[in-house]
Design a protein around this nucleic acid. Structure first.
Length: 680
DNA sequence: ATTAGGG
DNA sequence: CCCTAAT
């Protein structure tokens, strides 16, 4: 009996104790609420002692509950599960001490500083390229000119520090799309001529020469692996000396720091500090743990106690917090920037007729880092393509984005992770990158055109054009796009969503639905959405010509391109895309609930869905709700992907168990604890 | 930030 | 899934 109970209260690793906390539903509900609440703190020992005895006597009948047995069973199983990857990762201290491998699994670090130049290097003398390499301290020159065309290269290296985990350095540059050159539709040979202005690191100092439609992905960043990944390259202060300063067709490449939009300004504000101690949070956590989580009791809770006080636990909580704060970290700067950019958004509608390409572009691209290529269409005639706000006689400049490049990602996944989960992880990284926001600067004749209000004509970029001297820079911009500008804004869909990653013991059937296999095949973008925001993020078999022809992205489209992948569904936001739970997910959910009960969704989330960013604890709770419902109706009435009856049975069992025995559970564990203390 | 519960 | 109240 006792041992059984110990099983109940014992737990491994960070696994939150099933114990001393009654679900809020209980605590809050009904007349008993106060009672439970109050007595819990004051006289719980007494209560425990008494109740413990009572329970001991009523135990036999109570345990006749089928659920009981099952739950116990589940717990036993769990007890034997060793070192779930999840926990492993979370608790791995070096992750926190050294800059976080774990973090990098979620928050891609993009090296802006070690910038990426791209495209059309063919038009340059070979020596130029080489010298660029040197100047930028490329570690791996072999990567430099390596074209990463339609796929993402992974350099998978064994991560020494994290056994069992594999650190994937997604090769310095990930070219998504065909290439990154700019192309001038009319064949204009545009050369960037510069004088004083330098183009930012991420700049797209493209010559618009279209000699080779497939540009080279020039990767000048190399970097740190997990162990040294303390640096967050993207947001690091630019080190002048390390910057690329290369004359390139008279364009000096380097980070310009005179611009508020340049990296120099953003990096600090956007810095992701996942493991920075968060005082309030820490206190909060501590308090929480102190109050109801890790009570000092007997040997039973030794593990827990250990964790409670150990660095490991701290790390874990920090880690966990980091996950939850990840979004916040990224959002903060966004809000900051929002203000300054608001004018853009406002002005947009009024100013669209100005043909201010620079402006449109300025507002258009989002998503930090990397370089992209635009395909410049220069339509000379009256145009049917651009919107009605065009003045009839104006030649139009149509722009389309051909491809994007993501400079660098660091990813860490367990070796046991599925390919699908790897894909998904990469996807998340890419998503996070692009979600950060990006803005485009226009460089004309070597000068940055900042006057967004000016027309192209005024800026000298009009029809007669010297598009030859037009260039674009990509600048990290955590600007928030006004929803009004993105009427149908819709976050990108992760094709491999269903492929949940449960890097857990093999005892648990992992979910690796076939869906994941197609992860990178289809364009990431949800084309069917008719989303003007669609950019081809993913590699596409399309030839540049195709890209030109589909002309999907015209000026307007560009203007609203929100590489806003983070479903920051503010204000007029859409619903999240529906993501039915896979059987595997259900399984994981059921298992977690069996152990944790129905009132601790955050823990359930942490336990079984830690890596499933799109599953919030609310989602899990809702899913459980529907599961209970599903289980209680006849199979004929059920819809969607059928959940195995076995699982549904477990759902019902666990449900009834936890709903009927919640208070008993609490008391039981308390009494256990008490006995331990006294007995020992 | 979490949890519960209704829509 | 969303939204909200209450913690």
């Amino acid at each position: 009996m006792v041992s059984n109970k110990r099983l109940n209260c014992g737990f491994k690793g960070y696994e939150a104790p099933v114990v001393p906390r009654a679900p809020r539903s209980i605590r809050r509900r009904g007349p008993l609420k106060k009672l439970v609440e109050d007595s819990k703190l004051c006289a719980f020992e007494l209560l425990a002692a008494v109740a413990g005895k009572l329970l001991l006597e009523s135990e036999s009948s109570a345990s006749s509950n089928v659920a009981d047995g099952k739950v116990q069973l589940a717990i036993c199983r769990d007890g034997n599960k060793k070192a779930q990857p999840n926990d492993d990762k979370a608790l791995k201290s070096e992750s926190f001490d050294q800059g976080s491998c774990a973090e990098s699994a979620f928050i891609p670090e993009i090296s802006v500083e070690e910038c990426n130049l791209l495209s059309s290097f063919n038009s340059l003398p070979r020596e130029e390229n080489d010298s660029v390499i040197e100047h930028t301290h490329v570690n791996s020159s072999s990567d430099f000119l390596k074209q990463v065309e339609s796929d993402i290269k992974l350099r998978i290296c064994k991560d020494r520090s994290s056994d069992g985990n594999t650190t994937c350095e997604v090769g310095g540059s990930v070219c998504i799309g065909d290439s990154f050159n700019c192309k001038v539709d009319s064949g204009l040979d545009v050369q960037l001529e510069d004088d004083k202005n330098r183009i930012g690191d991420l700049s797209m100092a493209n010559t618009f020469t279209v000699k080779n439609p497939i540009g080279e992905c020039v990767n000048t960043n190399v970097l740190i692996k997990s162990e040294s990944s303390v640096k967050l390259p993207l947001y690091r202060d630019p080190i002048p000396g390390s910057l690329l300063r290369k004359q390139w067709n008279n364009v000096k490449l380097g980070i310009r720091d005179d611009d508020e939009n340049s990296f120099g300004c953003n990096k600090s504000s956007t810095k992701i500090r996942p493991f920075r101690p968060q005082p309030r949070t820490g206190r909060h956590k501590l308090r929480k743990m102190m109050t109801h989580r890790y009570w000092k009791v007997g040997p039973n809770l030794k593990d827990c106690e250990l964790y409670n006080t150990s660095e490991g636990m701290k790390s874990f909580y920090q880690y966990r917090k980091s996950i939850y704060s990840r979004e916040r970290c990224q959002q903060v700067p966004i809000k900051k920037r929002k203000i300054s950019d608001h004018s853009f958004a406002v002005a947009y509608d009024q100013d669209t007729s100005s043909n201010s390409v620079s402006k449109l572009l300025e507002k258009s691209l989002r998503g930090d880092k990397s370089s992209s290529a635009l395909i410049l269409h220069r339509a000379t005639g009256a145009s049917a393509t651009t919107k009605g706000h065009q003045k009839s006689k104006d030649p139009h400049v149509k722009l389309s984005i051909k491809s994007f490049k993501v400079p660098e990602l660091y990813i860490e996944v367990p070796e046991t992770a599925t390919v699908g989960s790897l894909k998904r992880t990469v996807m998340e990284a890419v998503t996070a990158i692009l979600g950060g926001g990006i803005r485009v600067g226009v460089v004309h004749q070597g000068k940055k055109v900042r006057e967004d209000h000016r027309t192209l004509q005024q800026a000298g970029i009009s029809q007669c054009s010297n598009l030859d001297n037009l260039g674009f820079t990509l600048e990290p911009s955590l600007t928030h796009i006004s929803p009004s500008m993105t009427p149908k804004k819709r976050p990108f869909i992760l094709p491999c969503d269903a492929d949940e990653q449960f890097p857990r013991s093999s005892a648990t059937p992992m979910i690796d639905s076939g869906i994941s296999n197609t992860s990178f095949d289809p364009p990431l973008v949800n084309k069917s959405d008719h989303d003007v925001n669609n950019i081809e993020l993913m590699s596409s078999p399309k030839t540049p010509t195709d890209a030109l022809m589909d002309g999907a992205v015209n000026v307007e489209a560009l203007a609203v391109v929100p590489v806003n992948l983070k479903p920051k569904r503010t204000e007029l936001s859409q619903r999240r895309t529906r993501r039915p739970f896979s059987v595997g997910e259900v399984e994981a959910l059921v298992e977690a609930v069996e152990k944790l009960g129905t009132g601790r969704w955050r823990d359930v989330k942490m336990r079984a869905f830690e890596n499933a960013d799109h599953r919030t604890y609310v989602d899990l709770k809702d899913k459980w709700k529907t599961l209970v419902h599903t289980a209680s109706i006849s199979p004929q009435q059920r819809r969607g992907e059928p959940v195995p009856q076995e699982l549904l049975d477990r759902v019902l069992s666990a449900h009834s168990y936890w709903s009927q025995n919640q208070s008993k559970q609490l008391v039981k564990c308390l009494s256990d604890a008490h006995e331990e203390m006294v007995g020992a």
